[in-house]
Simulated assay, not measured.
Amino acid sequence: MINAFLRHLRTDGLRGTLAALIDFSQHLWRRWADASFDRRYGTDTQGITDDMTELGVFTEHRLNAFGYEGIQIPVFQKMLRELKLDPSEYAFVDFGSGKGRALMMAAEYGFARTYGVEFSPVLHEIAQKNIAIFGQRNPRACPIELRLQDAMEFSIPDENLVCFFYNPFDDKVMRQVVGNIADSYARHPRKLAVAYRNPLCAELFDNLGFLQLVSSTHRYHIYKSR
């Protein structure tokens, strides 16, 4: 550590070295915070991979997906707060639910029920184990329903809904999913919100007349029905 600090001083100066130290400290804190959920419940929600073969995905849209990374716990908690709604009045859907971290945190937060949509059989199996452990240790949490399914084929529930995305797929798949949400809302107008982390396809939601952008940062966008 001392040698690395001295190298930074020589190459980046004091200001650059201090900035690097702050970034590294924040990185370590985020890793510790992200591991806190698994420490508490004995679950397995960590890891990062973009290898669709490793994830057991060989379907048509494997090239349209962006792999797995669990949502960062501090970021997700802030997004939930910025929704500014009573979670008991809403169901929660995670499109690209991975190992189930967001689902379990949403269940903790008090949503009426949660749905996870995941097309990787490997991640789906891990999520099933995680949900079982979580349910045993948190019996008061809401029901969590897992679907091993292409997100394009998921039938949007006709209830007040929070749709969560952690940049799970590209615009080809997202366009169809957004269309499914819009069609569902047209058939059954209701309270609907979207929480979109790393919003690369934000324009698809921006163009929906029934949604308005209520919170926007470089990390996420929050939309709610008008």
Rank of each mutant, 00 (worst) to 15 (best):
D206R: 12
Y185C: 07
L146G: 04
T17I: 08
F5C: 07
A193Q: 09
V178H: 08
G209K: 08
P189K: 07
D23N: 15
Y41G: 02
D94I: 05
D183V: 12
S36K: 02
R147C: 12
R190F: 06
T17F: 04
H124E: 00
L28Q: 15
K129I: 11
E118W: 03
G179V: 03
V75C: 03
N64S: 15
V194S: 02
E145S: 13
F66L: 11
Y68D: 01
D170R: 06
L28T: 13
R10M: 11
L204R: 06
S155D: 14
N180Q: 10
E125K: 11
E54K: 10
N160S: 08
I181N: 10
A195T: 02
L6C: 10
L55K: 01
E54A: 13
M1C: 08
R197P: 00
D94Q: 03
L63H: 13
S155E: 15
P157N: 10
K224Q: 15
C142L: 01
K191G: 09
Y185V: 04
A4Q: 14
R101V: 04
R226V: 11
F169E: 03
L148S: 08
F5T: 13
M52K: 09
F119A: 01
R175H: 11
R175P: 03
R113C: 12
R175Q: 14
D86L: 08
L148D: 10
T217R: 03
F164T: 03
P157S: 08
Y90T: 07
Q212S: 14
L204H: 08
G56V: 06
Y166K: 10
L161I: 08
Y90L: 06
S88Y: 00
P121R: 00
I2C: 01
L28S: 12
F24I: 06
Y115T: 08
F210G: 07
F169Y: 12
M152G: 00
V214D: 05
A141V: 01
F92D: 00
G100I: 02
E118P: 08
F66N: 09
G209N: 13
S216A: 14
V122N: 03
D86M: 03
K191C: 05
R190D: 07
K224I: 13
R30H: 13
V122M: 05
N130F: 06
I144H: 07
Y109G: 06
G96I: 05
V194T: 04
N167T: 09
L200E: 12
